[in-house]
Nucleic acid binder design. Structure first.
Lengths: 238, 238
DNA sequence: AATTTGCCACTTGTCAGGCAACTTGGTTAT
DNA sequence: ATAACCAAGTTGCCTGACAAGTGGCAAATT
């Protein structure tokens, strides 16, 4: 118990494995939308688990919108077009490809969000963004890396889009990437002196948003993100 | 609000409502990351439901990555940075704002995907895209609207990015929007003669991808998406 | 003969109780 | 003082049961 990597060593529960199997069967097209699943009793017998476990597994699918259940009638496979919930799970965040793909999506979302922010930001949005910019400068002056302020700055920008989907997705991806950096940084030497460069890029982004120049804002965000990705790549340079 | 809001407003199950309550308590910050939740027994007594129901509710949160459970120890609130699953649920797809926000996100993802596709598509990717383009032309020649072919065309493009996150997200958003159109179209007159215009825009996108011109591909995709959004806006022009 | 009504098997939703596996903190033995 | 051990507490999973809702079939009615 010297090093508890409590991430993947957790034994998969019976319900989880069963849910995974059922999900695969649905994805494999062995069951078509609108069709009824076997009864809980039948699944229970077929897979050798108890009914509560089956219920738990089906509950997950129901929660993800893959099936809908009607008491007394059964469980039915939902229409894929009516799917109302999207699930994005990052299984292995130590995987290099996985991180690269996430960063790529993050860049796409954040660059567009910056463009939209420049296009429709109100005065109060602009003030909020500037406040975070100043807060980051203050952190730098105090000699701190200012990761929280950095995040808050980007957060203020995506907030200015007024689109909650942008906000939530960007928030998730940002957290994910930063968490990866934080864990990877443990075995690397601390990199210093770059924060001022980051701040300069932030300033450029802010200026474009202030000027209400969407195309310029996108360009500024793209260079910032490209540079950030390059700095990031130092961590998994193999 | 996570329960299915489909045609019938069926009574939300006890587990669902309980899960929702717990989720709110966590979101309200009444419980902090790393903290332990009350035991299943305690929750059971406090909310007046049985332990299996509590288990089901906690199972939902566990599935969403909000809590992690350790047998013998208890259930703990997960670190938000370690969040490995992102959940995007579209609660009300008849809401105009909701649709607009979704379309906006779709445009961001698809435009960037098209840019990436132009940048890194292989010959086989290009062939697949062209095949879908031809299939759509064939559908038009047969006098069909070719919605499936249209979707397959875009699908082939996002596939060429090689990024599964782009593929999945784009797929979900695309399905969502098209489903909305399909349901809204019922009370509107069918609009005809535009499919050929769509096809021309598709052709422009394909040409840019074939030329391996990322910037051009993005521009072509953006105009196509902007036009598509304009056509779409006819549906909820109120 | 056609339609309505009532009934009954079946399925999901929920509950109660219980045992096994595991964790944790304190106690005991060395 | 250190290490092994034990016991209470907790989750994982099970059996068994009843309530609530659904669907089809047959009897009853028109």
């Amino acid at each position: 118990m010297t090093q508890s990597h409590d991430f993947l060593d957790r034994a998969p529960s019976l319900a989880d494995t069963l849910a995974h199997k059922l999900r695969q069967e649905i994805a494999a097209g062995r069951m078509r939308p609108g069709e009824r699943l076997p009864t809980e009793q039948q699944i229970s017998e077929r897979y050798g688990v108890s009914r509560p476990t089956v219920r738990e597994a089906i509950g997950r699918l129901k929660h993800d919108g893959l099936v809908v259940t009607r008491q007394g009638a059964g469980a039915f496979i939902a229409e894929p077009g009516a799917l109302a919930v999207f699930r994005l799970d990052v299984e292995d965040f130590t995987n290099r490809d996985e991180i690269r793909n996430i960063v790529e999506l993050l860049m796409a979302v954040e660059a567009t969000a910056t463009e939209l922010a420049a296009q429709r930001r109100g005065e109060e949005d602009l003030a909020a963004i500037q406040a975070q910019l100043d807060a980051m400068q203050a952190a730098i002056d105090r000699g701190e890396p200012g990761v929280d302020e950095d995040m808050a700055f980007h957060r203020a920008i995506v907030d200015a889009t007024g689109n909650p989907f942008f906000r939530d997705l960007s928030d998730f991806l940002d957290r994910r990437v930063r968490h990866f950096i934080r864990t990877a940084r443990a075995n690397t030497a601390r990199m210093g002196g770059l924060t001022q460069a980051v701040q300069a890029e932030h300033q450029a982004i802010f200026d474009m948003i202030a000027k209400a120049d969407p195309a310029g804002a996108r360009r500024a965000a793209e260079t910032h993100l490209r540079n950030a990705a390059e700095r990031l790549s130092l961590y998994f340079a193999k």
